[in-house]
Design a protein around this nucleic acid. Structure first.
Lengths: 162, 162
DNA sequence: CGTGTTATCCTGAATCAATCAAGATAAGCG
DNA sequence: CGCTTATCTTGATTGATTCAGGATAACACG
């Protein structure tokens, strides 16, 4: 039922010693076609291709693919887990504080060195994750309306590395 | 039972039209003395000062204080909600992927401009949050042992703005 | 192409942080 | 000091995620 058998994915799973199963392929395609979708959306999308797939197989597939590095799991504070297939390409996220919508930020202005902590507290740092919090265009009108009551000069504030 | 009645906190609550209650003061002090603690730890710490306080009052107090901007709620992926009293001072976090321990990073090397997205997708960006993922000193031995089996040149990789 | 091993999936139940609801209490104004 | 109502208490509920045991099928091997 999976029309496009992704050869790269097949090989990647195989190389990692993981079995190539229909649920896994369907879950991967669902993530691919629904970037930043939460688990329930992935579940629905997976069932569109493989109607009989179980709830558990999708959870398990997402975890396995994430651990294999084939999908990336993100979870902005207060949000459900979300998944995407873009991995290892140095991008970050922009999250709407109103509706939770997520967009990709290909890179930040500036170079990687700016993402080095000044004191690593003895940690071995493996990754720097940047999340931009804001209000998306669709939700902006609501925010404007709500803010109209108490608009002040502080609204001029835009990005701050807070 | 609250030995040190924080005058600043008292005023801040009052100015915001919020009532100054023992549970709120105790919750604030618990957060202050247990940086990055999760809700259960805050609950226990609050009860050390105010034994009869309810579960709900602590949840409510944390939410109220967070909405008032008096405490900051952070929630690294896969972790429970954590709280801290440092607000508005431009700092970020370093999270251990093994034990979940959180440390503060006062600032990143480089300037705020490096934390401006290159394409805001129509969002009004209010804040940039940086989370460094790594392994803390206490957990490092475990990681070393686990990695010994398959150590490769890629282990040289340190920070990347991934 | 058969066969065996076991990773993976399915069904169904459990977990548990967090939230909701309704009545009781007390903060703070006049 | 008394009134209003924000806040707290008690108790139940939600809901994403995980756990468990038996059934199925991927794939290594002969």
């Amino acid at each position: 039922m999976i029309e496009s058998v992704n050869p790269d994915l097949h090989d990647a799973l195989h190389t990692l010693g993981l079995r190539v199963t229909e649920p896994r392929l369907a879950v991967f395609e669902a993530v691919q076609s629904h970037p930043h979708a939460d688990t329930e959306t992935i579940l629905d999308a997976t069932r569109a291709a493989l109607p009989s797939v179980s709830h558990q197989a999708v959870y398990d597939g997402l975890r396995t693919l994430a651990e294999a590095g084939l999908v990336r799991r993100i979870q902005p504070a207060g949000s459900l887990a979300r998944y995407e297939v873009r991995v290892g390409d140095n991008h970050h996220h922009l999250v709407c504080q109103v509706c939770g919508r997520v967009e990709d930020i290909d890179c930040v202005v500036g170079e990687a060195p700016c993402l080095t902590p000044n004191d690593d507290h003895g940690f071995v740092v493996q990754q720097a994750e940047v999340t931009f919090w804001g209000t998306c265009a669709d939700c902006a009108p609501d925010a404007d309306r709500a803010a109209d009551a108490g608009r002040t000069a502080t609204d001029d504030r835009t990005t701050s590395a807070d």
